[in-house]
Amino acid sequence: MQIFEEMQSRGHESLTLLHHAPSGLKAALAVHSTVLGPAIAGVRLRPLDELEALRGALALSESLTLKAALAGLNYGGGACVLLLPDQGVDDPHAREALFRALGRQVRPLESRVVLTEDIGVTPADIAFVAQETPATLGVNTDTSSVTGYGVYRGMKAAARFALGSESMRGVRVAILGVGAVGRTLAEHLHREGARLTLADHRPERAQALADDLDGAAVVGTAELFDVPCDILAPCGYGHSIRSADVPRLQCRLIAGGEHHPLSRNGEAAVKEAGIVYMPDFAINAAGLIAAATALTPEQAAERVYGTVLRIGTVAEQYGKPPHVVARRMAERRIDLIGSLGTGTALQGRSA
């Protein structure tokens, strides 16, 4: 992996490696853009190797830039991917030390970066970060459940475009990944009468959820792409759908909570296959919106619904794929607001 080539191709501003030996902190902090304001950096904690952490930070930070811009927030995009310490984080004092070390390392960057929770990180962890730096968001927001509800509302708006109706009753939805976001999405879909197929890299987690949701089926992650369905909802860790897997897909719409489930080649492949893809940065923004504004979870989810509906309308009007339309909308806002020069945004307040 050629780091500088990767950064240049995506338009990143910086990539910083953070290290604090006593706490076990090893992290990659990527800042993609600060054109609209400080970069919101989702903090992830997962068992990854160094290369995976770097790639994840670069990809996630670009997605956050597009998400914030499309949501009308005065923030840029960043990402902070933590490697799991050798000693683990089961000891509460060790976990506190890890996240306070992160906050102290980020303190000199607080004019450019704001940290918030992502996979493997809780509001309590961000509260530890906040003891060392004010550059945090989401301490009092359960962003996973808000994101899951927003994905549900966004899925309904996308279904109007892709399936001809936003009703989920009887619609076959295959969910890949049933962590906090995927579980919340499944619960809302089940309540409306959707026919669910669940898969997770931890099969027992998918089975436990299916036991709670009468009628839900469980398959292995390797088999899910062969399941006939109307909607495939990736809610995993990223790049769940490889380009080589696209010919296997049995869905008409891809809409889920996962960041960057497809590569650029994958996006081209699903377009060629006639599958509608509503991109992650359009549909999974409710948690970010709620954390960054005074909006309620319901209001944040309705903003997602309205954004996805607008994307679908424009895509239909001009005959363009929704993922292309969404990216152009986000980039256009960045260009327009960026052209106003510095000092135009109210340092991270919502638009």
Rank of each mutant, 00 (worst) to 15 (best):
M155A: 12
E62G: 14
R95W: 03
R10Q: 14
G24W: 01
E13C: 11
L73C: 06
G76E: 07
R10L: 13
V324A: 06
V304T: 01
V106H: 09
L29N: 15
V308L: 09
L60Q: 01
G42Q: 04
A124F: 06
A53Q: 00
R183S: 10
E6K: 10
H260V: 03
G266E: 07
A69F: 06
G312S: 05
R252V: 05
R104G: 05
A53L: 06
Y305H: 15
V106M: 13
G72M: 08
A199N: 04
G170Q: 15
A206W: 00
D211V: 02
V227T: 12
A27D: 03
R202K: 05
F4G: 04
G24Y: 02
L64H: 04
H20Y: 09
F128H: 08
R44Q: 12
L209C: 03
P228Y: 07
I283C: 04
S14L: 11
R195V: 13
G148W: 04
G341W: 08
P234F: 04
G88Y: 00
R169K: 15
L249R: 02
A159R: 13
G150W: 04
L73A: 07
A208P: 01
D125M: 02
R104D: 12
Q317A: 15
V227Q: 15
G238W: 04
A351K: 09
G37T: 09
A28G: 02
R46T: 03
G150S: 07
L66P: 08
Q347C: 15
A282C: 13
Q250H: 12
S111P: 13
K320P: 02
E267N: 01
P228T: 14
R202G: 00
V324D: 08
H93F: 03
L309T: 09
A59C: 00
L51G: 04
M168Q: 13
R46L: 11
A345D: 14
F161V: 07
T221E: 11
R349T: 14
S350R: 11
A158P: 13
C229P: 09
P85S: 00
A162M: 11
E50F: 00
I254S: 03
A233S: 13
P261D: 05
E13R: 14
R202D: 04
V151R: 07
I175K: 06
Q87W: 02
D90Y: 01
S165M: 14
V106A: 11
S23H: 10
A208N: 04
L98C: 07
G103A: 08
E187L: 03
T344N: 06
A71E: 00
G179M: 04
I283P: 08
L15C: 07
Q2P: 10
E258H: 02
G341V: 13
A326W: 06
L18A: 05
A53C: 02
Q317M: 05
R169E: 10
L84F: 10
E192F: 05
V89F: 01
G287D: 03
R55I: 12
G348L: 14
